[in-house]
């Protein structure tokens, strides 16, 4: 068969006529949510806050915030899609912030986060934090001398983590500890005075309800129990 060499080009040519770049999404056309926040409103619906970096050179602000009222994250995603500049993508989610109000009062709020486990391309290493206060204040906090909110939260988490003054919980860890009957789920708790602070640790019971907060020193003891103590100084 002297035509062997034609097999490859013919195959490629045929494939080219069939394919249409179905999954292609150029980066500048995508709107990545780097931080998502969940709060509870009076009707028991979720308020979903998201912060999306703007890639346009002409944009004055570096990020775009959206606030949506929806019964669930999936419904909220649709509402967000009609407002974002770009295709809404949760694939680079770095931080999930939950308001203390939600964690205290909503039954089985953890099931809302189930949607992040469904897409194979979602990261499960997003850090989960509890915010003491109104989430609206957090998402409005954009000082000029600090980087954008997601990077701020991440560096805050890292600095606290390296001195063992707080816990670091990824989404995967959270699911594991909530489902594991032998361990208590713990989330870092941030609040906003004049600056962002990560000073406490929120403890949850196995339905996810908030039960108590630990101070810095008690958190260090917790980390000793978890065998994750690290002291960089």
């Amino acid at each position: 068969m002297k035509l062997r060499f034609l097999n490859l080009p013919i195959a490629i040519a045929l494939l080219l006529t069939l394919s249409g770049c179905y999954d292609r999404l150029d980066m500048e056309e995508a709107a990545f949510t780097l931080v998502l926040g969940f709060d509870l409103d009076e009707n028991g619906d979720l308020i979903i806050y998201s912060s999306i970096p703007a890639f346009n050179k002409n944009a004055k602000k570096k990020t775009q915030e959206t606030i949506i009222h929806a019964p669930s994250p999936r419904a909220g995603r649709n509402k967000a899609a009609i407002r974002a500049i770009g295709v809404f993508q949760p694939r680079k989610l770095q931080v999930i912030v939950l308001s203390k109000h939600l964690v205290e009062n909503k039954q089985e709020w953890f099931r809302y986060l189930d949607v992040f486990f469904r897409d194979g391309r979602n990261p499960l290493t997003s850090r989960v934090m509890v915010f003491d206060g109104q989430l609206r204040d957090l998402f409005k906090y954009q000082p000029k001398d600090k980087p954008i909110l997601p990077l701020q939260l991440i560096s805050l988490q890292e600095s606290v983590n390296s001195s063992s003054l707080g816990v670091e919980t990824t989404l995967q860890e959270l699911q594991r500890t909530i489902l594991d009957k032998g361990q208590t789920p713990a989330l870092p708790q941030i609040n906003l005075d004049s600056e962002l602070q990560l000073s406490r640790t929120a403890l949850l019971n196995h339905e996810g309800r908030y039960t108590a907060s630990l101070t810095m020193n008690e958190t260090m003891l917790l980390r000793m129990l978890q065998k994750k103590l690290r002291l960089t100084n």
Partner: peptide, 30 residues
Amino acid sequence: LSPDEATIIHQPAIYVLKSIELSFIEQVEG
């Protein structure tokens, strides 16, 4: 995976890899 978690996770070999974070690549399981 905790014992209860293990019964609800599909394809745990890939799920386990989702916990890895390297400095130059984020989601290694891709």
